[in-house]
Design a protein around this nucleic acid. Structure first.
Lengths: 129, 129
DNA sequence: CCTTGACCTTCCCGTCACTGGAACCCCCAT
DNA sequence: ATGGGGGTTCCAGTGACGGGAAGGTCAAGG
């Protein structure tokens, strides 16, 4: 199967698939004409990668997870460890964003939003002490 | 005042301050020896930028907000518009992250995390649902 | 006067995970 | 022969800086 079909089937852009090959996440074969040839296992890996990326795992996490996935002797504890670390990162990001949203929300509520220049948002940013 | 003092006072790394000059957010003077010389207004702008960045505004948003801040004839509606757009982005990101966290949280709960290879996390990523 | 060490300068590369685009090759149908 | 829709590589850019090299400047101490 060629890259275009793989892109359609996995939902990943062809560019992304080439990138994943470049960083050795997948190793498709090559046809005589130089075209990449994807096997079922390549498709499978790409789908795995797409789902892992959709859950926010970094590429390096994906590499680790893929290795664990292919290692029949893995310990699920190792997988869980990677996932929990990532969950902690997500929680931290959510907390940051919530703090921003709260502050910003209050400022927006306090702003008249009319044609006058007075603005609590700018006052706050300017250090309204 | 030199860049080191400004960095201490604003809490911004010197690298960041130089970068802000490079992209024309601030225009400090120069001493005969080539050193940047920061006036009170530069400090003020940098503090403004630091706070706006802490609220997650992009650099381009910061540029807009700074221009509005310095424009006595601004309409607060313009400021509010920028802020509300940004709030929407934050909310979208929070929603994405929450969805990831929920999915990931369930998978983690379902994973034994022991020395056996069976792992719902990998099963899910592998597309066995 | 010389040295030391803390500043400051510019410049270039690296980050992360791609994305866009140029220039070119390949294959099939008309 | 040509046209169009594949494919290929390589280079550059993204956002917002951070690291580090190579070198100029300045104040204090011996």
């Amino acid at each position: 199967m060629n890259i275009g079909d793989v892109a359609t089937r996995t939902g990943l852009p062809a560019k992304t698939i080439r990138y994943y090959e470049e960083i050795d996440l997948i190793k498709p074969l090559r046809d005589d004409n130089g075209y990449r040839v994807f096997r079922a296992q390549d498709l499978h890996k790409l789908n795995f990668l797409g789902r892992a990326r959709a859950l926010g795992f970094t590429i390096e996490d994906c590499r680790t997870l893929l290795a664990l996935y292919e290692d029949e002797t893995r310990a699920s504890a190792d997988v869980k460890h990677v996932a929990r670390d990532h969950l902690a990162q997500i929680d931290a990001k959510i907390a940051d964003l919530k703090a921003m949203r709260d502050t910003l929300g209050h400022l927006i509520d306090a702003c008249a939003g009319d044609d006058r220049p007075d603005c609590p948002i700018l006052q706050d940013l300017g250090g309204k002490s």
